[in-house]
Structures are given as C-alpha cells and as structure tokens.
Amino acid sequence: MKRTHLPLNGLRVFDAAARHLSFTRAADELAVTPAAVGQQIRALEDMLGVVLFRRTPRGLELTPEAEAGLPALRSAFLELEESVRAMQAGQSSQHLTIAAPRDLTAKWLSARLAAYAVQEPGVQFMLVAADDALDFTEANLDLALRLTDGTGEHEGVPLGDSRFVTVGAPDGGGLESPIAWPGCPVEDGKAVVRVADAGLAIDAAANGLGRACVPALLAEADIAAGRVVALGESRDGPGYWLIAPLPQWRQKKVKALVAALSEG
C-alpha cells in the first residue's frame, strides 16, 4: 500500500483499541465515542480485508492477523513521535538564515543582530545576499529583508518608515550632482558616479562625489555619526520590510527576531 493511501487515523484507533482491548476505553483515550471507534475499526478491516477483533464472553480479543501486524505498527508510531520531536526541536533552535541586501546588512542589520546575540546567547546567524528572485525553500531561509512596496504573497512587517532622504558631504563641499544607483536612477550625463547600491551611494556622498537619494533607514547611522548630512525635504518611496512565508513566519525564533528588529 502506498504511503498516500495509508489509513493513519484508522491505524491510530486500532492501536488504542488493541492496547485496551476495549472500544469504550479506546474512545475515552481518543476523545471520541465508542461508536466512532467501532466505525473506524470496521472501515479499517474492510480496507485491509482482514478481521482485527473477535468478541468473546471475556471481551475483545485480537485475531492472529492483528497480532502479527501490531508490533511493527507500534514501532512505526514510536518513530513518528521521534520525528515530530525532532522537527519541533528544529523549530526551537537558535539558528536563523537571513537574506538581506548587502548595504542594509552593513549599515543597519549587523549592529542589530550583534545586540540581539548579546540578549540571546547561543543564537547563530547565516547571512546571505538578497536576490529579487530568491526562493525561500530552495535557499532554506527563515527571514528576508527587502526594499519593496509590500509583502506580496508573504507575511511581513515594515521597518521604520518608507522615506527617502538626500544626503551629501557634511561640510557642504563636494559635488552637487546626483549619485546614481539602481534604486534612484539618474539621466545619462547628469551623474558623475554610478554605484551598485544605496550603501555605496552614501559612502560616495560622504566623500564628496555628489548627493545621494537613499532610504532614510539606511542613512540614519551615517547621519547620526556626522559622515553625511540630510539635504532638503525627504520624499516617499519603497521601504524595507521583514518578510517570510507563513510557515517560517510562525516559528518562535523568527517571531522573536522580527520583534527585536521592528523595535530597533
């Protein structure tokens, strides 16, 4: 019989009835009625083509066919219990695989993960560079941080606000031309420098290579440190989000990290 056709519920009822040699006591254990136990046993007997119990003046007795299959069945249930415990132990582990853009990891995420690790001894992180086409299952991810307009098909919460801010060199010097990066394209001929991401754009602005329009969340540490200054008014734009598919989102370890990153 194929695994997909195994009558697992019926086998569970059979195991309980065989241990108690009583449909009534099996029903009490399983929180169902004795009639429901009887129906499950009859359905299982019909499927298997064997009789499992005989009624005698002394009560229920197992047939030879039932006795022959019972040891392997109980061994299988024990292995299933071990499997469930192993999966639950994995859920409660402190190992988290996180995908994030390289610039966000460098300028925002790493410091917060370090603070979280101090509060949660034993936690371990695997950090991978984010990819727009990243597959959570294939990459075995627990959580991702993305610059996006929303969560799409996944669960998620925003990090801070979605403002973009323009930053430049702190002394007012340097070039005034815009710094181009994929999240803030600039017309050909107007940018002196083009870089791969917003983090490099902030560094270029700090070095006087122009003015960078970048996510406020990414620039806040450099602004606080005086490496760059905010110029003019901020504008709306896509924000950073913590996202994950629902199964990963439900994990205790993911919930705890999401709470810590959202607050910080």
Rank of each mutant, 00 (worst) to 15 (best):
A169P: 06
A130H: 12
T166V: 13
R146G: 07
P57N: 05
P57F: 09
L246G: 13
S177K: 02
A139K: 04
E45Y: 04
R194Q: 14
V128Y: 07
L200P: 02
L78V: 08
W249L: 11
H154K: 02
T137R: 13
A204C: 09
L96M: 06
D142I: 03
W241D: 05
A76L: 15
D149M: 05
A221L: 08
K252A: 15
S93N: 05
S177M: 06
A111L: 12
C184R: 06
M126P: 00
S234F: 08
I41N: 09
V254E: 09
N207E: 10
E176M: 09
R235D: 09
R12F: 12
H95S: 13
P245I: 05
A17T: 01
E263T: 03
F136H: 04
T56W: 06
V165C: 14
G237S: 11
A256Y: 08
G160T: 01
A43D: 04
P101M: 06
A256V: 07
Q251V: 04
G173T: 08
A169I: 00
G189I: 00
K2H: 12
G189V: 01
D131V: 01
W108L: 11
T97C: 15
R146K: 08
D188E: 15
S22L: 02
L159I: 07
A180V: 01
Y240T: 03
H5L: 13
G152C: 08
I202T: 05
V50F: 12
Q248R: 13
V229H: 12
A72L: 13
V165F: 11
D142H: 10
D236G: 15
F14D: 03
A76H: 10
A99T: 01
G152R: 00
K190W: 12
D236N: 10
L113H: 05
C184S: 15
L113N: 06
L127I: 13
G208Q: 02
A244L: 06
V157L: 14
T33C: 05
V50D: 15
P71R: 00
L109I: 01
H5W: 10
T63H: 08
R25G: 03
A114C: 06
Q251E: 14
D15A: 15
G239N: 07
L6N: 00
A66R: 00
A66V: 00
G122N: 04
A169M: 11
I41R: 03
L261D: 07
D197M: 08
V229R: 14
A244Q: 02
Q248W: 03
V254K: 06
Y116G: 10
W108Q: 10
L147W: 13
S93I: 00
L246C: 09
F164H: 14
K107C: 12
E153C: 09
L127D: 07
L62D: 03
A31F: 08
V50Q: 15
D103H: 06
E263W: 03
R163I: 00
A230N: 05
L104Q: 09
P170A: 11
M47Y: 03
A31C: 11
I202G: 12
V193T: 11
A43R: 04
A76E: 09
S162V: 00
A16H: 10
V32C: 13
L70Q: 04
F125R: 02
D161W: 05
